[in-house]
Amino acid sequence: MLNAVELTLVQSLAQFLSYAILAVFAENVIFSRALGMSSLLRLVDDPDSKTWQYCGPVILVQLGSAPLGWAAHNLFFPWLRGYLPTWLPIAALRPLVYLSCSTVVMALVWVALGGFPRATRQIYRAQLPGATYNCCVLGTLLICANQNFTLLQTLGFGLGSGLGYLFAVLIVDEGRRRLRSKDVPAIFRGLPSSLIYVGILSLAIYGLVGHAVSV
């Protein structure tokens, strides 16, 4: 028999994992919400960029900024609301505050990368700004705030969103490789075929979930 503390731990872990899995598959940032789609297409087209070099920083920044975003939504904004003039809605400040959360995490990751070998460090640091100022990162923070997730749910969803982005990059990369075939009509090569391909995958997930996700 599990005691109360163990039960709470197991429940928390289950909740964390379920939100992470939800974010990877059913509410994938690319297939369900198209967040970071432009960056993804650029990434799969760029032969110099490696998937991990971009997605690694995305996952780190996403996971790190999740608790800060939660704190901003639940602690900072309620405090700030009392000081704001009536003509200035708090919604106008959300991007600025959430961007600041991501920037703080970017700085921390940048410092943490100092412990890596020089070549690795330089590669990851070069990708860090692009990974931080990404629709995927800011969009996930906004979704967590809109849906009033708890801290644990926010962490799980943040991690899942980062992993989901990696998952989408791998799938689109493979699809894009096959779509370079000469069998594809000339006018559909490139961006049109990629969009239709992602659309079909999105349709599959929509069919699996059975309803549209909230925006």
Partner: peptide, 14 residues
């Protein structure tokens, strides 16, 4: 739906 948006935009782009 987003899926329709992707497919429609792909066709328009083509």
């Amino acid at each position: 739906e987003p899926a329709g948006g992707f497919i429609l935009l792909g066709v328009v782009a083509a």
